[in-house]
Structure formats: structure tokens, C-alpha cells
Design a protein around this nucleic acid. Sequence first.
RNA 1: GGGCGCAUAGCUCAGAUGGUUAGAGCACUACGUUGACAUCGUAGGGGUCAAUGGUUCGAAUCCGUUUGCGCCCACCA
Length: 889
Amino acid sequence: MNIELEKNYNYKEAEKKWYEYWISNKLFSATSNSNKPPFAIVIPPPNVTGELHMGHAMDHTLQDIIIRGRRMMGFEAVWIPGTDHAGIATQKKVEDKIRKEGQTRYTLGRDEFIKKVWEWKNQYGSQIIEQCKRLGDSCDWDRLRFTMDEGCSRAVKEAFYRLYKKGIIYKGRRLINWCPRCRTALSDLEVNHKNSKSKLYYLKYNFKDQEGCITIATTRPETILADSAICVHPEDERYKNVVGKEVIIPIANRAIPVIADDVVERDFGTGALKITPAHDPTDYEVGKRHNLPTYIVIDEKGCMNDEAGVYAGLDRFECREKIAEDLEKAGLMEKVEDYTNAVGVCYRCDTVTEPYLSWQWFAKMDDLAKKALEAEKEGKVKFTHPRYANTYRTWLENIKDWCISRQLWWGHRIPVWTCEDCGHVDSYLEEPTKCPKCSGEHLKQEDDVLDTWFSSGLWPLETLGWPDKTKDLEFFYPTKVLITARDIIFLWVARMIMFGLEFEGKVPFEDVHVHATLMDKSGKRMSKSLGTGIDPLVLIDKYGADALRFALAQMTGQGQDIKFPVDYKKGTKEIERAERVETARNFANKVWNATRFCLSNIPSDIKIKELDFSAMTDLDKWILSRLNKACMTTKKAYDTYSFDVMADELLEFFWYDFCDKYIETVKPIITSENGSQTVQAQILLYVLNSFVRLLHPIMPFITEELWHLLPQTEGSIMKADYPQYDEKFNFANEEKIAEIVFETVRGIRSLRSDAGIAPKKIVKINVSTKDENYLEVVKKYADTIKILAGAEIIISSEDNVTKALVYMYGVNQILLSAEEIDNLEKQIADMEREASKIAKLVESLNKKLSNKAFIENADQNIIENEKARLAEAQVKESKLTEQIKILKS
RNA sequence: GGGCGCAUAGCUCAGAUGGUUAGAGCACUACGUUGACAUCGUAGGGGUCAAUGGUUCGAAUCCGUUUGCGCCCACCA
């Protein structure tokens, strides 16, 4: 009957066992044929190239908590998993791989290369999924999707087709961001700006028809070959007379005009700017305004092209140095200064990007953005932290058209075909066999693929079956909440909102919860490339998935970035200790051991369902009331995504109230001969039963294990109800009584410790007060106090004046006879220190209460409160000084 | 250049709408181990709440300025 358990919780075995159990019992699956209210979350699909990092661990922990919690609360909760084909990232990975085999994508050719990528995906693409399972993710794995699977591909085509037909998608020749390594266009969001130490070159442009020159400052002398003009500010007195004249480009020896435009900052450099429309975004705009010709001198590889004459074939950076040298030789370089500026780099490969004039596909953003903006303002989608709503708004208000074409091979090929016979261009949902215009059969599809974020923007729709009107879509859409990291609010979140509104007329999720970013000890963002990453799997191996999850939940406050402290073994990258996770592991062990204690002392046939209130003490009711409060606090935390509050409340309740106080209090009863049949035994099991359910969403493995060990439970804890707040368990009065008992215990322990009394020695303690209520409680719970504090209570009269050490609990004196004390001098000093502290408090309260302005302005209840505090402090002070006097005599 | 966030104990962080002697965990000190747990228990030391000015009867909390750190956006070449 009595169950014997291991001394420490063995998470390694349990995690494996229960995950398999959940899978084989299909406990993660959800259906749209349900009477329950729907609750869906789509996972931010990790890249197929990805490995689980701490960001995922955080992200997934929070989502899994919500999903598991809501599932227990009676929702048809589904968490839809999947992975992202991650165009550039994956293509790069495979390119790197085939390079080792002496190949490039160009030597292989498009079809062969894509085949290689698929092979790679099939081999490694599920790695991250397996890692998610280690964390305990309760995704409905039967719904696993991939952004390039058949359904997603169809959704992408449909979305493109509709936007194209509406005129939202168009093709244009524009200056876009180009990555010369990836050899593709990038959207503005895919370019990171990095400070770079560079040089500012001052170059002389001689006038064509007169003496003298204009000096301009540039960081990119290699682009002078493509200059179209020199530009000055229209109101700049220095250059008033030269606007309209012509100057000669150094080296190129081509004449270009001097123009005026107010983009020029008069204070920068010399106040004169060279205009190179094809190689700089500002210049491009100026060029358009002034109808300047465009010259292109840099090619798609970042090398100088044939237009660059003798420089043709040189890399752009080599060319920069070479030209600078040549200018120097020609005496056209006035000076060179060190200069720090921001250069754009590719967000995937860190290569410096190049403004590149080319034909690309764009999506018009104004209308889509307007709707996305309105939806947020109307509260249809809510950011749980208002500051992210602000960044979202500002971005949408200043949005530019989105370049959606990529010159990659891995991705969704743009569904547009051109008729080679008549030149007709159109988008089709299915591959056309002949031209609808001329019936010609020579149709050629666009070579470009779509931006990865185009397909992930459709994620909530495509995973639910869109464009079909599926039952899933009807039932689960819009999803409830999106939980994600901060860095993809624009790239991903905003685009999903736009597409959701455009294609389904509804936002794709009601709430957006942006969680904290994890940083290392020094405050650097945790990332693999910075070398600041930590492998969550190492932490799971070391402390268990439950511990990692609990620690992460506890650490994610109000979206504030958090440092994750880790100690490494000296001189290595091996983790010695992760303090927060260790604490969480200890908590898991505490839960394990408390349960172990109860199960080994209480027979499994004791009824936990019908609690006998009539047999309960105040302390019994107190722990039930505390449990009840925990139900309320955690439920509220689900509604507000306050994971830290949830975790803290559960830990505090269980460790400090249930284990340290309640179990210790009832231990003698339980372990006595007939103790296992008492209401206290019943309550222990009742609390455990409820508590493991409250804890399950955060620590799924250990709670499942314990659920199966606890009596009168059935099946999986995942199928159990989430405990709810119930007014009939609210015992406010008993909570006050419990506080008196435990605070008195604390006082006695403190006295004993100060006096250096051996822990096992039972001492006599006098309590002395006018407070009848206090005396009554202490009398009633004298046994409990004796158990917990090792003290026999003697009620003394108020004017008891024996020599004693005193601990003031409110106005109540807890006295330890001076005979017990060996270090009396020190104790007197401590008491004097205490007394002087209280004297200061009395003084400040007196001052406050005699302040007329305070009495006139403060709320009545605050004044009352302060008066009560003063009265109490005065009593404390006088009792303490009195005792000190007696002790000294 | 614009915007946002942060600064509280040695470390990591809590501290709606201003009103307790400013809290927790880790670390530290002392004591404690045959009966749930040393991955533990009990007690304790430790902070002029970054600086400065202001609003207020009253400020860690509200406002201004400064300093330091982090992040986002941006066409000063």
C-alpha cells in the first residue's frame, strides 16, 4: 500500500517515457469537429536548417504552457507545427556543402541543385523537430507543415495570383538591395546596418570650360565612373555661380552637369555631392527628379563591369583602392579622412550589400498597410506590450513597397509566364500550356523565386488549409495568440496581419505576445554567430526539460530583455552551472520528494474527493485557501501571459507554504499510528492532486509521472481539468490565524538562533500581550508551535517583568528567559539596535501625523493606517526599552 | 539623425493607478543530517533604489536634465 520512490527524481527516464506515451495516445491532436471552444497557436516555423537555440526554447516553452493550460481548461487547443524553407539560409548551407565537393550551383544547374537541396532537407530538416520534442512541445505533429509542401505551394500561388490580378503585385526596374554573394535582391528588412571604419575621399572635379574645380567628398570613389552629376544645395552661396556649368569626372574624363537639389547637406564634406543614380539610393531619387542618365559599373557579383574600362573585372573594394591610388597620382585627390559610416550587410551572409538597379517584383504596401494599421487601432489585434504596438504602427505608417523577388533557386518560383510568341505576360494558378492571347505554346516562367517571408506571411492561413474553405479554417481561424521574439515583428508578424486581412478579412491572431530576448552574462544578445549561444539540449541533459522550462517561464517578465547567467568550466565552453535552471531543478526535486513523503505515509484508498470540512483545523483551511489563491493567480496569469507570475506563485505556494509549513505541521499527525486516516492525510493528497495539475503546463514531465503515482487519478494528466478558483475554499479568517501561528514560530526560532540554543532543545517561551485574539490563537496552536519551534508556550500577564530576550510580533511580546542565554551582552546590543530603529520609525510617523498638510490631503484610510502603525510602533518601542532596562539591571 | 527600453543588495531580477522599516532567488555567514528532500532545513548580514533639478503633505514609483548600457528605425555622401 505504501509506495516507495527513488530519493531523487530521474528526469532522464521520465522524459523519454512520457513523451512516447503522449504521442502513442495521440494526446496532442485536436479536431475541428469539437464542441469545445477553439484555441489555436501556429508555431513560428523554425528554419529547416536550424538547430534548437535558447530563443526557440523560450518561445516554445511559453507556447507550450499556454497550449497545455488551455487544453486542460476545456479548449480544443491545437498547436500547429512546421518548418520554414528559409530560402537564402538553406540555399547557402547547401552551396557550402557542394563547394566541398568541388561544385557550385552554376556547375550543377538549377534542377540538379534544387534536387540537392531537397535531399538535404529530407536528411536534416527534421532535426529541429526532434529537438523540439525534447523540450516537451505538445504540437499536433500530424499537422506538421513545411512552407514548400504542396499545400503551402498552392497557397502561395493563390495569394500571388490574387494580388497580381488586383494590381498589388507589379514588376519594375528599381534600385534594390543586392547581395553580391547570394546574388539576389533583398528587401529593406533583410539588410542590417553595421558601423564600418572607412575613408572619406575628397576628389577634385575640374570645370570643363573654366579654370578651377569642385571638390566633393565620397566614401565610394569606385563609383565615380558612373557619375551623372555633381549636386549642391540651391541656397549654398559658395556654389551659386557654378550651377549649370559642367565638370569633368576624373579618370573617366566625361563631362557632367552641376545641379542643385536640397537633399544636399551643406555642412557635410564640401557641400558638394556626386550623383551616381545606379549605385546609391539617394542619388537614384535625385537622378529621377533631374532626369539624369544612369550608368552601371558594378555587376551582380560585386565586380566592376566592362563600363569600368581599365578597372573591369576588379572587385569593388579592390577597385576602390586602385582608383584612389590613380586619383592620387593624377593630383585629383585633395585629402583622405578616416570615417565611420553605416554599411548595409546581408542578414544571412553578412556580405556588404550593393544598391543594384534591376527588374524586380514588388508588392504595393499602402493599402495593405492601411488595413493592418486600422485593425490594430481598432483592437482587433492586441500587442500585449503596448510599446510594440507603437513600433508596429510607426513601421506601417512609413512603409515602402516590398521587393518580393529573389534571384535564388530554392523557393516558390514566381507564377508568372511570358508568351515568347506574343509577349503576353500573366499570372496563372496552374502552369499554362498555351497563351490565352495568341494560343502560342512557348510560355516561359519567371526564373525568380519569392521572398521566404512571402510564404511565411501566409502561415496561419496555409496551415489551416487555405485557400480551401476547410473546416479547420472555419473553426480555428483566427488563431488566439502569436508568441514570438522581437526581431521579426516587421518581417513576419506585420505581414501575416496584412495577408490575413487581405485574404480572410480577419486578423490571423487576436493577441501578439512578444517575449524577452535572452542575453548572455555581459548583456550581449544570445546568438550562435556572436558565440554567445547556449545549447538548450545541454541544459536539458544536465537539469531536465522541466527545469529549463520552469526557469525560462520564471525569467520572462514584462518583455524585458534578460541575462541568462551561466558559469563555464574554467577555460572551456562547457557549462558548469546554470544557476536559474539549477534552482528550477531543485524545485522539481522538492515536488518529487514532497509527493514521495505523502505517498509513503498515506494509503491510496483514502478519499480525496469529499473533504470533511467539519474535521478541519484553521491551518487545514488555510492551506486550502492558499491553494485556491494559487488557482486564481495562475488563471489570471494565463489571461495576461504573465508567465513569471505563474511560475513564482506555484513555487512559493508549494515550497514555502505547503512543504515548509503545512507538511511540517501535520507530519506528526500523518506519521502517527492512525494518522493516515485523518482529514490532514486527505488534504495532503488533495493539494498534491491539484498542484500537479496547476504545474503541469510548465513542468509537463514530472507532473505526468506524479499523476500516475498519485491515487485516484486516471489516464494522462493532460486529460485532467485545470483546477479552478472556488469561493467555498476562500478562508480569509483562517489565513490570518495561520499567519499568527507561523509568525510566532518565526519569532521563537529567531530568538533561539540569536541565543545560540541547540536546535533540539525544547525551551519555554512566555508570550505576553493584551491582545486576546492573539493569546487565543497561540493557546489553541501551542502544540503546532511546539512542533515547529521546539518551544513550550506559557501565557504571561502583561506586566510580566522577568529578565528575557524579546521578539516583538506586532504589539505582542515573545519572550525567551534570559537564563537560557549565554551571549547576553551581544543580545542586548542587538535589541538596542532594534529599539533605535523603531524609535526612528516612531519619530518619522509622529512627524508625518502632526503635519497638517498630510492630514488635510491624504486619504482617510491612509491616515488611519499610519495612526495604527504609530500606535504599534510606540508599544514596540516601549516594551523593547523596558526589556533592555530589565536585562541590564 | 529619429524613436524605444533599461539602470534597485556582490550577481540575476520583482516592485499597476506615488503612502509598510524597499523584496525574492543565487552567492555569503552561523547552526543543523537515522525517517520526504544536503538538489535540504533554520536563522542572519548586506541596498543613501545611476546622478541632478522639480511636482507633491509624501517619490524607487510622476515630470525635466545629465551620465552609462542595450535595441529599433533612418537616403549625411
